[in-house]
Design a binder for these strands. Sequence first.
DNA 1: AGATCGTGCAACCGATTAGTTGCATAACAA
DNA 2: TTGTTATGCAACTAATCGGTTGCACGATCT
Lengths: 112, 112
Amino acid sequence: MTRDQEREVVLAALADATRRLLMDLLASHGEASATTLAADMPVSRQAVVKHLGILNAAGLVSGERVGREMRYKIRTEPLEATARWMSRLATQWDKRLLTIKRLAEMDDETDR
Amino acid sequence: MTRDQEREVVLAALADATRRLLMDLLASHGEASATTLAADMPVSRQAVVKHLGILNAAGLVSGERVGREMRYKIRTEPLEATARWMSRLATQWDKRLLTIKRLAEMDDETDR
DNA sequence: AGATCGTGCAACCGATTAGTTGCATAACAA
DNA sequence: TTGTTATGCAACTAATCGGTTGCACGATCT
């Protein structure tokens, strides 16, 4: 998977209110199973499992099997990485826009 | 629209490769119309128009009518705001996890 | 061993999404 | 005024998404 695709799955994973709630709950509990989490959520356990799958694919969550239950916990690194990437993008684009603006002003000079 | 929903539309807008390409092209051109942009993209003009609509709803782009054409340009503020929000979320969750870990260690002490 | 509990798989459903094509209309150029 | 060009609106399609229910299997408790 390319880096761009990695960013995409993180963004897509976070662009869902249920998934954000799930992350928040998970941050409060520290570690929890799908069944436990589903109890505090407005959707079925199966829905929670699917969401955990998506979050896991995005690296935002990791699961560990303990006996018959599956314990999930949050991973915040991809979040931080994505935040940095976004910030970098913003400055990069701003820089380009500034350059274009400068060129336009130079054209103004020569026009006069 | 709540702040959370604002974040959501930005994330959803950015979670699409075509839209990111569009933003990138727009950052290079400074200002451009849907027709111009579509020429450099693998999709139809109408598809570009729809994407611009979504980006506009997210505040990532703004359009201005000039004669018969519609000129769009990038707005980077919502990007920066979302990046800050993400970063804040990450530290917030990390903090909570640390607290939980500390509590667990305290329990270990009293167990002995 | 038998009852219970959590997980995982699969089928299905309605809504949304990314894309298309076709057409009407407004602005500009000759 | 006539032809051209960019926009905007609408209808349609295929794929994806968030959610459900039903069921089978493996682990735990009594």
